[in-house]
Amino acid sequence: MDAYLTDVVVPTMRERFGVEPTVFRDEVSVMVPPERLTEAAQVLRDELGFDALLDITGVDYWPEGQPRFHVVYQFYSYTHNVALRVRVPVEEDAAQVPSLVPLYPSANWYEREVWDMFGIAFEGHPDLRRILMPYDWVGHPLRKDYPLGYEEPQFSFNFDDIERRKPRPRA
């Protein structure tokens, strides 16, 4: 594992946020609560040199997971050539995470994708619309309680039929 990660990044995160990093297959991830995410991203960008946010995605642990979702951020530093993963646990009812668009513009589409697929809203996002699914789609497909369905080509004669059978999340 990279010395910069073990000697600088991990101690800083431990000191400032009281988080114990987990290491799996040489990859370091830290768990940060949603209310401290903006602060953590600020430290990562300005003090630790993580200049790129390469990916944001969500994971759904339904039905037994507590809290239900994790939002997973992949930070990367071009200067030091190290990667760090930040996981943010999110409850289903208060599915609300601060948006990182002001700090990392690349978060824009990724957060829209997570909103579209998991229904996790990002507070302060400039343009939180669906991105992959049609704008009037109901439900969030990558949630585990959303059935893996099929879609029939839609014509005028079977429109009502399809509308009735469309996969929907169990309410």
Binding site: L54, D55, V59, D60, V72, Q74, P105, N108, W109
Partner: peptide, 29 residues
């Protein structure tokens, strides 16, 4: 560009989550 796979295993034969970090998506932004 950078094509990354984020895979989360849950101990079973099927993945908990597979996410593809695709370069075109990021570049198109």
């Amino acid at each position: 560009g950078e094509l990354g796979f984020y895979i989360e295993g849950n101990g079973g034969p099927k993945p908990q989550r597979v996410h593809a970090r695709t370069p075109s998506f990021a570049n198109l932004q």
